[in-house]
Amino acid sequence: MNVLIIGQGIAGTCLAWELQRRGVNFMVVDKPLGETASRVAAGLVNPMTGRAFRPGWRQAECLSAAAGFYPETERELHGSWWQKTPIFRELETEDQLEIWKERQMDEASSAYAGPLFPWPEGWNGKGSAAYTRGAAVLHVEGFVNAARALWVSEGRLKEGVVTPESVVSDGDAWLWDGGRYTHVVWCTGWEAGLHPAMAPLKGRPSKGTILDLALPELEWKSGILHFGHWLVHRDGIWRFGATYAWSWDDPGVPEAPAIQELMLSIVRRYKGSDLGYLRARAAVRPIIRRSQPVAGPIPGLAGQYVFSGLGSKGVTTAPWTAAALAAFLHEGTEIPSDLSPSSFWK
């Protein structure tokens, strides 16, 4: 078995790691480093999503998988990118407060819906700050860069561009750049829908912009602030975002309206007199169905597979999904029906 993985964002990285666990040969091919959703992402794990504060898709399984997977990669790669930390979410209206109280009593969400707190000094929060348990932050860029360095050193990752036309079959295997592969997995994010055989997966990708800021007078750094946008501290820098844009010119270039939206939002909330703008970053999220992943065989293209659709929840769902796909490829375990791409071809 020899697997060609195309794309080394969080999907490709998690899948390669799971195949490595199983002793499977693989080659990862990725474009030269640039602004991608995995590198720009804040890496938030939020157990209470949406306006109704409901647990996410396959939440128990995905949170458990993530909590084991990322610390393992830290140990193996001698890095630090996984941090468990609460989210303090703004509850401004009576309706929001009532929903939160319901979640505190509900069996499915009571483990996550914590007490209410005042906002920290230096921050102009509205209403109450609802404490969300079970949350975390992954420094995604640090994780994928460390894995990349390892696999480059082992000869299992190369930089390049793979087009659908460049992957050809000899009847027994798939050929690309002199290599023969039993399986080809496209982990190309929002661009998966541009593949001529995967048009049904085009979805509704969204461009997001975040800011890196210096907020020297905001001393509180023990959690994530969530108030429509999120604010998280990492290595002396505050990361703030993100916006959603459904059309764009250049997927990796921040646009002025998005930067202005974020700057206006932070100015209204931060009470300090010294606000330092460091840089803006942007990339496109692969959203196919409510940010639920898609993984499995590509209909009509035997021996080729896709892993995409992670959207804004990819840090949470990628490890569990990668394990399911790796088990399918290596052991023949049935792919869960809610992961399979086949439903999009019906």
Results as ranks from 00 to 15, higher is better:
residue 50 G to P: 04
residue 33 L to M: 04
residue 3 V to I: 04
residue 22 R to H: 05
residue 295 A to E: 08
residue 151 W to I: 08
residue 162 V to I: 08
residue 243 T to V: 12
residue 63 L to C: 08
residue 8 Q to N: 07
residue 152 V to P: 02
residue 336 P to F: 00
residue 298 I to K: 04
residue 132 T to W: 04
residue 25 N to S: 13
residue 217 E to L: 00
residue 162 V to M: 05
residue 2 N to T: 11
residue 248 W to D: 03
residue 292 Q to T: 03
residue 66 A to G: 05
residue 331 E to A: 15
residue 233 H to L: 07
residue 123 W to C: 13
residue 279 R to V: 00
residue 344 F to M: 00
residue 282 A to W: 02
residue 173 A to W: 08
residue 125 G to K: 03
residue 74 E to Q: 13
residue 175 L to M: 06
residue 104 Q to I: 12
residue 273 S to N: 04
residue 88 F to N: 13
residue 30 D to S: 13
residue 312 S to N: 03
residue 48 M to A: 09
residue 38 S to D: 07
residue 253 V to A: 03
residue 124 N to F: 03
residue 285 R to G: 07
residue 58 R to P: 07
residue 173 A to C: 14
residue 274 D to S: 03
residue 186 W to F: 14
residue 49 T to V: 14
residue 267 V to I: 14
residue 182 T to I: 01
residue 155 G to C: 08
residue 201 L to S: 01
residue 283 A to G: 02
residue 88 F to Q: 13
residue 74 E to I: 03
residue 70 Y to W: 12
residue 67 A to G: 14
residue 22 R to V: 11
residue 237 I to N: 07
residue 130 A to Y: 10
residue 87 I to H: 06
residue 222 S to M: 08
residue 248 W to V: 01
residue 279 R to W: 03
residue 337 S to K: 07
residue 165 E to P: 08
residue 43 G to F: 06
residue 20 Q to H: 11
residue 110 S to N: 10
residue 64 S to K: 12
residue 108 A to H: 14
residue 191 E to G: 09
residue 183 H to Y: 04
residue 38 S to N: 02
residue 45 V to N: 06
residue 109 S to H: 00
residue 291 S to I: 08
residue 78 H to E: 15
residue 231 L to C: 06
residue 344 F to E: 02
residue 62 C to D: 02
residue 271 K to G: 05
residue 314 G to Y: 00
residue 321 T to V: 14
residue 215 L to N: 11
residue 32 P to I: 03
residue 175 L to T: 10
residue 40 V to Q: 13
residue 218 L to Q: 03
residue 40 V to S: 12
residue 339 L to G: 04
residue 95 D to F: 01
residue 190 W to R: 07
residue 281 R to Q: 05
residue 340 S to G: 11
residue 125 G to H: 13
residue 187 C to K: 09
residue 5 I to G: 01
residue 174 W to Y: 11
residue 188 T to V: 14
residue 182 T to N: 14
residue 136 A to H: 08
residue 321 T to W: 02
residue 102 E to M: 10
residue 323 A to G: 11
residue 184 V to S: 09
residue 10 I to G: 09
residue 136 A to P: 12
residue 303 G to I: 10
residue 38 S to K: 07
residue 99 I to D: 03
residue 262 L to T: 15
residue 298 I to L: 10
residue 86 P to M: 05
residue 290 R to H: 10
residue 179 G to E: 00
residue 47 P to C: 07
residue 344 F to G: 04
residue 104 Q to P: 04
residue 59 Q to M: 12
residue 213 L to Y: 00
residue 72 E to V: 12
residue 215 L to K: 00
residue 159 E to Y: 15
residue 291 S to E: 15
residue 191 E to R: 15
residue 290 R to F: 13
residue 229 H to V: 05
